[in-house]
Write a protein that binds this DNA or RNA. Structure first.
Lengths: 357, 357
DNA sequence: TTTAGCACTCTCGACCCGAAAGTGCTAACC
DNA sequence: GGTTAGCACTTTCGGGTCGAGAGTGCTAAA
């Protein structure tokens, strides 16, 4: 029997089991499916079908004489053949739009908001991710003069990001001196990555600015901070507490592992980068995730693009029995909104990952 | 028998019980105290003393025939009479200094780092807090010109904080126009709280800037965001996962309550503001905290001042049986370092809250 | 005042048991 | 041949019992 060859009834049963299990979190017995309108057969028939589905790897039993639970393969099949788009209620849509329309210049904040929204709507943990820009370089420096002892340094990076930092100095600085200093910065440091800003270069810079050499150190520090912030990428996690509502995380040890994972940037990043060559919407079910700690959880996320380039991702982490249909719909909606906000194209990537036909 | 009238032996016993309980997390029996070098009497004697300490409210039994556990009053006595400063190892000191000396212009980041450090060293949850500045007003606007469609708006607030935001516009903007626009901003919006920036004022502003009126909306949004960020204060929590190592939080329900609390800014803020009239170092044991969810936890924090004004706080949340001596020493050390970094005075408040003599 | 001894109390884990739930299989049915 | 009813079998789960272990309180002696 070929893999696609699931009979209509088997599909229905599998779907019903997945959805019931997502809802109740317990193994599903043959009788409890009888309430399903679409299934007109008896519990015995269902039992037979279930036994077959089990031998095909879509279901499993925690123990003899418990109901069935979908396997990872079962969820995978369910997700791949998701047809029924989850229809968001108008209230949800309204809230999403209201929040997103608060146009906030910065992508960072948009992503943060998205993560919060996701966690609130789905009752799972919301994730926002900003990738590390391989090697950030400043393409232009600007400044704003505050008073003789302080200034704001504005750095425009090659990818268009703008970062600022405040610099304090013992020196007594005039507006003109500041402009001159910035001009030198623009001459000498533009286009350099952090590792290219070497000691000789710094010394040289100090020489060029003459009396203002005391400014060099704090400014360099400021630049360095901005660069490393950009280089290292960022994560934000919201609503971990939701996870505790699911018996899957009742085991403290397991939950602790999860928390540790969520506190560790590198681990989280590894979850994302792995699959990012593929589609924009990724569904990683259980052990499909790179990390052991995630083998009982699922991670659904969607890349956010600007001008075709990946500039971030938002997603959801939750138990394997996740309401995929709902989460996927929500992510699509959200990414649509975000793309609208940050301008340019919404770089496709299919609303639903459809089965490999 | 007056409260201070604890005999030397009773003190010793109480201290030994507190410390053993902090270490092992289990009720302490009379026999297990025999190993303590300083106690030369027999277990029976200790039992008698323990019975008295219990009737005085310093100890309690989870049930007959279990060992004793310190009550809140017991911890309070212990903390109040803490004598032996916890001596930090040179390694710890070195790490603290190394991290703090990375002088980062911004208080925010210092606090964040402090919170991370605390959580790492204590194995409890680290907290960093920045209070809401009652009513933030901008005392000066500055700008940096990026290109004809974008600029960086620099806002200097009345309390000295500097915030920046990037503003985009459809307009084609020249440097001169920008300067003029900023001048108008300085004229019309300085010294106003967010609630004082009313619609008539905005309309008036639009009129004053003539052709640039399209700039007004994004700029106002930017100002508003900065203000509300400043107004609402900020919290950062690190290392919640540590808490799971303590059996006190093995109960999922309890831990969940804790997590919820930690995700809720207002609640956390209420924990701090309550006691802030008193000393700089605050120890809230169990139900001394304002919130029910904290009645089984302790919260130790220290205010951070600049020029005598409270500009933040760092602290630790953990089980009631917290290693107070250690945490307090760490906080003192840290606050010393922070005060050094952000300049000016270290505004006293005593290293240790000594008993009310 | 301190100590030794002993009876008493309480928790905790192991074990057992019956109820409940769900299956697999067989035999009858359409 | 596919579907259904019925029944024996298996496994979990909650409750109850029991004995070991730990620690106390009290009493009597030093």
């Amino acid at each position: 029997m070929s893999e696609q060859g699931l009979s209509e009834r088997k599909r229905l049963i599998l779907k019903a089991i997945v959805e019931a299990h997502v809802l109740y979190g317990e193994p599903i017995g043959s009788k409890s499916l009888l309430s399903n309108q679409q299934l007109t057969c008896s519990s015995a028939t269902i039992r037979n079908e279930m036994a077959e589905l089990e031998s095909m790897g879509y279901l499993e039993q925690p123990h003899t004489s418990a109901g069935r639970v979908p396997t990872e393969l079962g969820y995978r099949f369910y997700v791949d053949s998701l047809a029924k788009q989850y229809r968001m209620t108008s209230m949800e849509l309204e809230q999403i739009n209201r929040t997103l329309q608060r146009k906030m210049g910065e992508l960072d904040r948009i992503l943060e908001d998205a993560s919060r929204l996701l966690s609130r709507f789905t009752n799972y943990a919301g994730i926002a991710f900003k990738p590390s820009t391989a090697q950030a370089t400043v393409s232009r420096f600007e400044s704003a003069y505050l008073d003789e002892h302080s200034l704001v340094l504005v750095m425009v990076f090659s990818d268009g990001t703008v970062k600022t930092g405040t610099v304090y100095t013992e020196l007594s600085l005039s507006q003109e001196e500041l402009s001159a200093f910035i001009a030198v910065l623009n001459q000498q440091l533009c286009g350099l990555t952090s590792s290219e800003i070497t000691l000789p270069r710094i010394v040289n810079l100090e020489r060029s600015v003459g009396l203002l050499s005391a400014l060099v150190h704090p400014v360099i520090t400021c630049i360095y901070n901005a660069m490393s912030e950009l280089d290292s990428g960022a994560f934000r996690v919201d609503g971990v507490n939701h996870l505790l509502e699911y018996p899957e995380y009742a085991d403290v040890g397991q939950f602790k592992e999860m928390l540790n994972l969520l506190e560790n940037k590198e681990d989280l990043a590894s979850l994302i980068s792995d699959g990012s060559e593929g589609r924009d919407l990724q569904v990683h079910i259980g052990s499909e995730n790179a990390l052991d700690a995630m083998s009982n959880s699922s991670f659904v996320y969607r890349l956010v693009r600007r001008n075709g380039q990946v500039v971030g991702a938002v997603g959801v982490i939750g138990p394997r029995r996740m309401d995929y249909s709902r989460v996927i719909a929500l992510l699509n909606q959200l990414s649509l909104g975000i793309s609208g906000l940050i301008g340019s194209d919404e770089a496709g990537g299919g609303a639903l990952p459809d089965g490999k036909k």
